[in-house]
């Protein structure tokens, strides 16, 4: 059980998909103009990641190695289509804001890379925790960026007025998203440097 929790934690901070592995950056910039959108897309990603990881882990012996990539893509597309149909039933307002990106979860590199690197080799339970960890890490990243941008851009958090004015309008423009991610990444590097004395090389970024 302990190792499973470690797997989960690993995905949240030490191998955070956005800031550490630098995978699936597109939604990290696009939907994070406020916390709510980030939260919704993050939950969708957690769902897709956990479901696909489990599916692959269960059927891993049946999937022929030569067709594994198309098979993974199909499995991901299946769960994405499911969430794409279920989400509007839950909350149509937010769905409208994240609609395109929910569909694009199919091509999020983070999901397929977890399937390839982890779920295709490990049994169900570890795969579940790995998928959940990565998903939650992604969710955490989206919410962090969303919170910074919403607070500095519109002076609110989750729609509640906090500051009463708008300090930096640029933060909710496209530009702001890139800046915030760049600075958070640098901050992660800095913390790591203070703790361990060396700067890790950033992920492969694709």
């Amino acid at each position: 059980m302990h190792s499973n929790i470690k797997l989960f934690w690993n995905g949240v901070i030490p191998e955070n998909p956005i800031f550490r592995l630098a995978l699936s950056m597109c939604p990290a910039v696009a939907v994070t103009t406020n916390v709510k959108n980030g939260l919704m897309l993050g939950l969708a990603v957690v769902f897709v990641q956990v479901c696909s990881s489990c599916t692959v882990a269960i059927f891993r012996s049946l999937i022929h190695p030569r067709i594994r990539i198309p098979a993974y893509v199909l499995i991901i597309a299946l769960w994405v289509s499911v969430i794409d149909m279920v989400l509007p039933v839950i909350d149509i307002e937010i769905y409208k804001d994240v609609e395109l990106f929910v569909k694009l979860i199919v091509v999020f590199a983070i999901i397929i890379s977890r399937l390839e690197l982890f779920a295709s080799k490990e049994p169900l339970l570890p795969s579940f925790f790995d998928g959940a960890g990565m998903g939650v890490g992604f969710l955490f990243g989206l919410c962090l960026i969303g919170a910074i941008r919403e607070l500095s851009g519109s002076g609110t958090i989750l729609g509640h007025e906090l500051l009463g004015f708008r300090p930096l309008l640029i933060m909710i423009l496209p530009t702001g998203g890139f800046f915030v991610i760049g600075f958070i990444m640098a901050a992660f590097n800095y913390i790591e440097y203070k703790l361990t004395g060396k700067i890790p090389t950033s992920g492969g970024a694709h």
């Binding site: 022929h64 030569r66 198309p70 199909l74 499995i75 597309a77």
Partner: peptide, 12 residues
């Protein structure tokens, strides 16, 4: 390969 891919597609 064909059979297994078809199975995946159909079940999806």
């Amino acid at each position: 390969i064909t059979v297994s891919l078809t199975c995946v597609c159909i079940s999806a």
